[in-house]
Nucleic acid binder design. Structure first.
Length: 681
DNA sequence: CTTAGGG
DNA sequence: CCCTAAG
């Protein structure tokens, strides 16, 4: 059920915002000049990323010399700018709140304040953030624009932009060798819809599987990040995800200060172009349309998410009266489907809702006895990161009712269904500190006290069903005992299904807590740390299911007799009885094989569990059955006589499709024809 | 929603 | 039975 989530928001088509004129952009009033610098640095970096993409494209077509001279790069960049195709994003004025920016911004916070220049190194995708004396940002920028930077920049921190990752490269790692590839990069044309894997930016570098990278890196979860939510997601997000250390590094780095190495790739494959374009566009979009405040808050991200989520959302589809809904495959590749359950177990939450007090996170070491629902352990590392180890969540209380005669399997299923149903309903994650709920999603962990040493062991997370109506009721026993479920969905469910839910600003999943979890999730991939690994495992499950399922959750009031929860299980199999077959055959003989709805109406009006699709399918199998040797048939044997009729009707209607229209009500037509045919024989 | 087909 | 593209 829980599949890996791919945060590949293909719908990220954020309309780019018009950039301010550079002159305007330049004077971005900022409270802190330092921040300004950072912002600038960030933007430079970002813009470079875009430039690089563009540049690489150019290089591809023009055998630009890749060697020792940077000029080519700078030049191209400059040119681009001139053409207006690509403009430096640098002075993009106020950061009005884009996730991307915020992320980077944050990332850059501790960066050396003097990163003044960004260098586009040769033809590899490396951007160097150089610390140059006392140049001001503007100066640097100007240099940059003038294409003069490259040479002046002493190597500082390099940022390799690959796909959606920005990797920091240590100063001492200037050039790469193939040998370095194994250390984290590999050339690849990325892709995957997964945000994690990287957007199809097609740049030249690609971080290896995050897991590989994390081999030596204790993944640190940075709870401070407000922009970690995958929903904000895109390249920058990923970059931040991989952040380690002091919260001011952009990219991956292992603990030992052994930065990831990179491989320089000069070859520009044409094949990479399209992705590059995409990448560029995304970069631009992110940078231009997602401006946020300097210190964007979660909300911003949420909104951003909204924008993103819009696209690609397909209208829901109601299946016939019946009983199940199908959900489109999510962009994440995870398919969630719901069906009406005709099962036999009944699951209800105690009060029609779910208790909210029950989640627990188990700390990798014990928990404090204080918070009953806290088994989360938080530990502060030397740096500013906080690690959250959430081993498990206790699900809210559920009531499951099954007949004594139920099998163990059915009980298991009932439990599973209850749980799944609950999850599908969507979950809110609450953060508890000493048993008390932490309010204020936009507050930092520091502000809430969560990061305080003395509170590290008093932290807990709770899962709260997002909907009171979410309690699923599973009816165990004969379907007839259960009211026929109504295929109706609440508006909410609909929204959820559409996938827009994720984007809802108020979505419970967008709480800080949620993000924390997400963070864990993301961190997972870059960590091999056992603890973290576990965390992630749990976190992932929690995040994944709820997130996706949010959409899937049909809000089903347990107390309402008319509704049943939809389960993920397939409908229970209900072999057609001979009499049903007979009725079907008869109806088909009369109506033909293209009017299943009519067939149902005629012969299965009261059989709510038989949809016209079922009838159609049954007919299909009947035809098949009739054609095969009796020994090969399985299940309850169907009288040969019926099978013969099936064959006859099948043959007849196969040749009279054209006539079906006008013969609908001419009962006997087929029979007569068959009779005639029979007589001939 | 229905059909028609493939899975 | 499920899932879906088409209509």
């Amino acid at each position: 059920m829980v599949k890996r989530l791919d945060y590949g928001f293909r719908g990220f088509q954020v309309p780019p915002t018009a950039r301010r004129h550079r002159s305007t952009r330049r004077r971005v009033p900022s409270k802190k000049s330092a921040e300004d610098d950072q912002a600038c640095a960030f933007e430079l970096l970002a813009s470079l990323a875009g430039e690089l993409l563009q540049e690489s494209e150019n290089s591809a077509s023009s055998n630009a010399s890749e060697a020792s001279h940077h000029p080519s790069c700078s030049h191209s960049i400059v040119e681009k700018e001139r053409e207006g195709e690509v403009k430096p994003l640098m002075a993009k004025g106020n950061h009005d709140g884009s996730c991307a920016e915020s992320i980077l911004f944050t990332e850059m916070e501790s960066q050396k304040s003097n990163q003044k220049c960004l260098e586009h190194a040769q033809n590899d995708c490396i951007v160097q953030c150089v610390s140059v004396n006392n140049n001001s940002n503007s100066e640097c920028w100007e240099k940059f624009e003038a294409g003069l930077m490259s040479k002046n920049c002493k190597c500082g921190n390099k940022f390799v932009h690959h796909s959606n990752r920005l990797v920091e490269i240590p100063e001492d790692v200037r050039e790469s060798s193939d040998a370095n590839v194994k250390n984290g990069f590999r050339r690849e044309q990325v892709v995957s819809n997964s945000g994690f894997k990287g957007l199809p930016l097609g740049n030249k570098f690609c971080l290896k599987d995050p897991l590989e990278l994390s081999a030596n890196s204790p993944a640190l979860i940075n709870p401070n990040s407000k922009v970690r939510s995958p929903f904000c997601g895109d390249m920058f997000l990923n970059a931040s995800i991989s952040r380690h250390g002091n919260n001011n590094k952009l990219g991956f780095r292992d603990d030992d200060e052994n930065f990831l190495r990179y491989k320089r790739v000069c070859t520009k494959s044409k094949a990479l172009r399209p992705p590059q374009r995409v990448a560029r566009r995304r970069i631009k979009q992110l940078l231009t349309s997602k401006r946020g405040k300097v210190a964007p808050k979660l909300k911003d991200c949420e909104h951003s998410r909204t924008e993103f989520a819009d696209e690609g959302v397909k209208p829901l589809y109601h299946k016939r009266k019946a009983c199940y809904y199908s959900f489109e495959r999510s962009r994440h590749g995870t398919l969630f489907k719901r069906r009406k359950f005709f099962g036999r177990s009944s699951v209800l939450t105690s009060d029609g809702g779910f208790s909210c007090d029950s989640v627990s996170n188990s700390p990798d070491k014990g928990i404090d006895g204080d918070s009953s629902n806290s088994s989360a352990k938080l530990q502060a590392s030397k740096d500013s990161h906080l690690k959250f180890s959430i081993k498990s969540f206790r699900i809210p209380e559920l009531y499951i009712e099954v007949p004594r005669t139920s099998t163990v399997a059915s009980l298991k299923r009932a439990v599973k269904e209850a749980v799944m149903g609950m999850l599908r309903g969507g979950m809110h994650v609450g953060v508890l500190l000493q048993g008390k709920k932490v309010r204020g999603n936009n507050r930092t962990l520091g502000q809430t006290g969560i990061s305080r040493e003395e509170n590290l062991d008093k932290l807990g997370f709770v899962l709260e069903p997002s909907s009171l109506q979410a309690s699923p009721a599973v009816c165990v026993g004969e379907p007839s005992q259960c009211k026929t479920p109504q295929p109706t969905r609440s508006p909410e469910a609909h929204v959820l299904d559409s996938g827009i839910t994720d984007a809802l600003p108020d979505s419970p999943f967008l709480t800080n807590a949620s993000n924390l979890v997400e963070s864990n999730h993301e961190s997972t991939s870059i960590s091999t740390d056992t603890i973290v690994d576990k965390i992630t495992t749990d976190a992932r499950a929690l995040v994944t299911v709820p997130t996706r399922s949010t959409k899937a959750l049909a809000v089903v009031p347990a107390s309402q007799k008319t509704r049943h929860s939809e389960l993920v299980q397939r409908r229970t199999r209900r072999p057609f009885s001979v009499s049903e077959v007979e009725g079907l055959v008869e109806a088909v003989e009369e109506l033909g094989t293209g009017r299943w709805r009519d067939v149902k109406l005629r012969a299965f009006v009261n059989a709510n569990h038989r949809t016209y699709v079922d009838l159609k399918d049954k007919w299909k199998t009947l035809v098949h059955t009739a054609k095969i040797a009796p020994q090969q048939r399985r299940g309850e044997p169907v009288p040969q006589e019926l099978l013969d009729r099936v064959l006859g009707a099948h043959a007849y209607w196969s040749h009279h499709q054209a006539k079906q229209h006008g013969m609908h009500h001419q009962a006997g037509t087929m029979k007569e024809t068959m009779l005639i045919a029979a007589n001939h024989i």
